Lab assay of single mutants.
Amino acid sequence: KRPMNAFMVWAQAARRKLADQYPHLHNAELSKTLGKLWRLLSESEKRPFVEEAERLRVQHKKDHPDYK
């Protein structure tokens, strides 16, 4: 399984919050909304998630050196 990218790291927590706020939204609508919200974030707001995704990528490479 591939490591999560920055969006997926962020969306993991954001999806729970959004689903709690809008329990009537279908998963497809949640995903579209999350995409729009992510694009509205500034680079500095995204930075911690980009850094975490990079950490996960490096760890994955270490754990699975033959993964392509």
Results as ranks from 00 to 15, higher is better:
Lys1Ala: 00
Lys1Asn: 10
Lys1Leu: 02
Lys1Phe: 01
Arg2Leu: 01
Pro3Lys: 14
Pro3Tyr: 09
Pro3Met: 07
Met4Glu: 07
Met4Lys: 13
Met4Gln: 08
Met4Thr: 10
Met4His: 04
Met4Trp: 13
Met4Phe: 10
Asn5Ala: 08
Asn5Tyr: 07
Asn5Cys: 06
Asn5Arg: 07
Ala6Gly: 00
Ala6Leu: 00
Ala6Glu: 01
Phe7Gly: 00
Phe7His: 00
Phe7Trp: 06
Met8His: 11
Met8Lys: 14
Met8Asp: 10
Val9Glu: 15
Val9His: 10
Val9Leu: 13
Trp10Glu: 00
Trp10Phe: 00
Trp10Pro: 00
Trp10Lys: 05
Trp10Thr: 00
Trp10Ile: 06
Trp10Tyr: 10
Ala11Phe: 03
Ala11Tyr: 03
Ala11Lys: 00
Ala11Ser: 05
Ala11Val: 08
Gln12Ser: 07
Ala13Cys: 08
Ala13Lys: 15
Ala13Asn: 12
Ala13Asp: 15
Ala13Phe: 02
Ala14Val: 00
Arg15Ser: 01
Arg15Cys: 02
Arg15Lys: 11
Arg15Asn: 01
Arg16Lys: 14
Lys17Leu: 03
Lys17Arg: 12
Lys17Pro: 00
Lys17Phe: 03
Lys17Met: 03
Leu18Thr: 03
Leu18Lys: 01
Leu18Met: 11
Leu18Gln: 00
Leu18Phe: 08
Leu18Cys: 02
Ala19Leu: 13
Ala19Glu: 11
Ala19Arg: 12
Ala19Met: 08
Ala19Thr: 08
Asp20Phe: 05
Asp20Tyr: 04
Gln21Phe: 11
Gln21Glu: 05
Tyr22Met: 15
Tyr22Leu: 15
Pro23Arg: 15
Pro23Gln: 15
Pro23His: 15
Pro23Cys: 09
Pro23Thr: 15
His24Val: 03
His24Thr: 11
Leu25Asn: 04
Leu25Gly: 02
Leu25Pro: 01
Leu25Thr: 01
Leu25Cys: 00
His26Glu: 13
His26Asp: 15
His26Leu: 10
His26Trp: 06
His26Phe: 08
Asn27Pro: 15
Asn27Cys: 09
Asn27Arg: 11
Asn27Ala: 14
Asn27Gly: 14
Ala28Tyr: 11
Ala28Gln: 08
Glu29Phe: 15
Glu29Ser: 14
Glu29His: 11
Glu29Ile: 15
Leu30Arg: 02
Leu30Ser: 03
Leu30Trp: 03
Ser31Pro: 09
Ser31His: 04
Ser31Ile: 03
Thr33Asn: 03
Thr33Trp: 15
Thr33Val: 11
Thr33Ala: 12
Thr33Cys: 10
Leu34Gln: 00
Leu34Tyr: 00
Leu34Asn: 00
Leu34His: 00
Leu34Met: 05
Leu34Ala: 01
Leu34Trp: 04
Leu34Ile: 08
Gly35Asp: 11
Gly35Pro: 01
Gly35Ser: 09
Gly35Thr: 14
Gly35Gln: 06
Lys36Asn: 10
Lys36Ile: 00
Lys36Tyr: 01
Lys36Gly: 04
Lys36Trp: 11
Leu37Val: 08
Leu37Ala: 12
Leu37His: 07
Leu37Asn: 10
Trp38His: 01
Trp38Cys: 02
Trp38Val: 06
Trp38Phe: 06
Trp38Gly: 01
Trp38Ala: 03
Arg39Val: 02
Arg39Cys: 03
Arg39Leu: 02
Arg39Ile: 01
Leu40Ala: 15
Leu40Arg: 14
Leu40Asp: 15
Leu41Val: 09
Leu41Asn: 05
Leu41Gln: 03
Ser42Val: 06
Ser42Gly: 11
Ser42Lys: 13
Ser42His: 10
Ser42Cys: 04
Glu43Cys: 15
Glu43Ser: 13
Glu43Ile: 10
Ser44Asn: 08
Ser44Thr: 07
Glu45Ile: 15
Glu45Asp: 15
Glu45Phe: 15
Lys46Ser: 04
Lys46Leu: 01
Lys46Tyr: 00
Lys46Ile: 08
Lys46Asn: 02
Arg47Lys: 12
Arg47Asp: 09
Arg47Ala: 10
Arg47Asn: 04
Arg47Pro: 07
Pro48Ala: 06
Pro48Asn: 10
Phe49Leu: 09
Phe49Ile: 07
Val50Lys: 08
Val50Tyr: 07
Val50Leu: 06
Val50Thr: 10
Glu51His: 04
Glu51Ala: 08
Glu51Ser: 04
Ala53Ser: 10
Glu54Trp: 01
Glu54Gln: 07
Arg55Met: 12
Arg55Cys: 11
Arg55Leu: 10
Arg55Ala: 12
Leu56Gln: 09
Leu56Pro: 11
Leu56Arg: 09
Arg57Ser: 10
Arg57Ala: 12
Arg57Gly: 11
Arg57Thr: 12
Arg57Trp: 04
Val58Cys: 08
Val58Ala: 09
Val58His: 14
Val58Arg: 07
Val58Ile: 08
Val58Phe: 02
Val58Gln: 12
Gln59Leu: 08
Gln59Trp: 06
Gln59Val: 11
His60Trp: 07
His60Leu: 07
Lys61Trp: 07
Lys61Asn: 12
Lys61Ser: 11
Lys61Asp: 07
Lys61Val: 09
Lys61Pro: 10
Lys61Ala: 09
Lys62Gln: 08
Lys62Met: 13
Lys62Ser: 09
Asp63His: 13
Asp63Arg: 02
His64Arg: 11
His64Phe: 11
His64Asn: 15
His64Leu: 10
Pro65His: 07
Pro65Phe: 10
Pro65Val: 11
Asp66Val: 05
Asp66Trp: 07
Asp66Ala: 03
Asp66Ser: 08
Asp66Gln: 04
Asp66Phe: 05
Asp66Tyr: 02
Tyr67Asp: 15
Tyr67Val: 10
Tyr67Gln: 14
Lys68Trp: 05
Lys68Pro: 09
